[in-house]
């Protein structure tokens, strides 16, 4: 059957690129972890809040508003 192609050269090149790129990136990643590149990310959890929509404020009330205090209660 003519359509049965042998694995072409492109495939081999791709696998080499994949392994090489993969290995390099994995080392880079390990290095990044060891040299604490990801250290200060924990403050990122607050990145979605700001003064107008601070922590403690519900931002979707399509079905109505919670009773009093609960919605404005501050949490760490």
């Amino acid at each position: 059957m003519a359509t049965l192609m042998p694995l072409p050269l492109a495939g081999l090149i791709l696998i080499l690129v994949a392994l090489l790129g993969g290995a390099m990136a994995m080392f880079a990643f390990l290095w990044a972890v060891r040299s604490k590149q990801f250290k200060d990310l924990s403050s990122g959890a607050y990145a979605i809040f700001d003064e107008e929509e601070p922590v403690g404020k519900m931002t979707d009330n399509t079905f109505g508003f919670p009773e009093s205090e609960e919605s404005t209660e501050k949490r760490d």
Partner: peptide, 19 residues
């Protein structure tokens, strides 16, 4: 990860876990 904290107004519990 965006809408749960954003809607209830509370940061995600553990950022490291998410990483």
């Amino acid at each position: 990860y965006y809408f749960i904290p954003k809607v209830i107004g509370r940061p995600i519990h553990s950022y490291y876990l998410s990483l």
